[in-house]
Design a protein around this nucleic acid. Structure first.
Lengths: 190, 190
DNA sequence: TCCTAATTAGGACGCTCGTCCTAATTTAAG
DNA sequence: CTTAAATTAGGACGAGCGTCCTAATTAGGA
């Protein structure tokens, strides 16, 4: 790997952390300078501005999501078990969710308000999960319309649990609701 | 009403709109100056800074919430119908929800990330709804523990629907899910 | 080794930020 | 009316913002 790509990754990782933990608009360029320990000019060289950094972050996250979903597909032959695994993702991330909310939901939600171009940029992350969920429900023999409805509903349930966990800083709620949701999936769709 | 209070209200209303539509951190002091048409000094006279404006906004919103819930209590003798009305609130606000998300969820979520003092300030808005929902489930003869769980779950469902509606700009989803949720309430709790 | 392109450092700039201060004007009580 | 308090206007200020530019350094192929 070229030297510059290492720097790019470092910027992307640090900025990703900052955007998640502080919000996109609350993070300044010099915050990123401080966090990376790089010079201002160096960062500008790799990314013209905050928006380009965001673009890099999204690209990187999309790759992570694809990798994750592919791994789940391999690990779990049963769509039901895949959906269950999807729910369990929230348990893996419970500390972060409690403190900072959903990495996709809070970012897309923030940008959706009044930065339409950046909002469009982040939307594919949601779409990946939506599409993948749709595939699982299709495998479970739902009509495409019904599969889509189920996919969005599950996404919605998970987002709701995340918001409440975040707002009330309540991981007990998270654990209980995920456990209920997993049961519901098994009962409803199996 | 004294002259100054009219100005205060004007500031609160305009800032409330801006914070909701752009986010708290993305709204500058001079945005508020422009939106109100007042002078910088005048706003500073009434509120030292953005945080004090937020404090005023929360106070005002809490009063609105109390008024709303009291009206619902009067209008609907049945707790079930009150819960249904609660869900229907999202339909009344569907245009705003689609564009800007939940006025409480997005604000509290934003501030929760790294402005703990302001986050604490906004939390009571959520608590009002939580408490009120708890009361309704208590009236439905649930144990206090079970009533609390039901209250949080309903809040969670509603937040989830809001997030998806906002992120996907999809009011069809909103209408369908609210309708399903209302049926579920009637079937599960009646 | 040398040379060119890639990378890094950091200063200059104009702008906006939030805060503070002072003066002008309006209000309302006496 | 008079007068003091409440309210409003708007400029001054330093700090931080993002962008741009140039110079120094480094890396890697020839």
């Amino acid at each position: 790997m070229k030297q510059g790509n290492k720097t790019k990754l470092r910027i992307i990782n640090e900025a990703n952390k900052l955007f998640y933990q502080q919000g996109f608009n609350a993070t300044s360029f010099s915050n990123i300078v401080d966090a990376t320990g790089l010079s201002k000019g160096n960062i500008t060289y790799h990314f013209k501005n905050k928006q380009e950094i965001l673009s890099g972050i999204v690209e990187s996250r999309l790759a992570d999501i694809d990798e994750l979903l592919t791994a789940w597909n391999k690990e779990f032959p049963s769509p039901i078990n895949r959906l269950v695994r999807f729910c369990e993702m929230l348990l893996d991330e419970q500390d972060n969710l409690k403190q900072y909310g959903c990495p996709m939901g809070t970012l897309t939600g923030e940008l959706s308000k009044n930065q339409p171009a950046l909002y469009q940029l982040t939307l594919p992350m949601f779409k990946r999960f939506q599409t993948w969920l749709l595939e699982q429900f299709t495998l479970l023999n739902f009509s495409s319309e019904q599969a889509n409805e189920n996919a969005l509903e599950l996404l919605s349930r998970v987002q709701g649990i995340t918001v409440i966990t975040h707002v009330f800083k309540d991981e007990k709620f998270l654990n209980k609701e995920i456990s209920k949701l997993k049961n519901e999936i098994k009962n409803r769709y199996d």
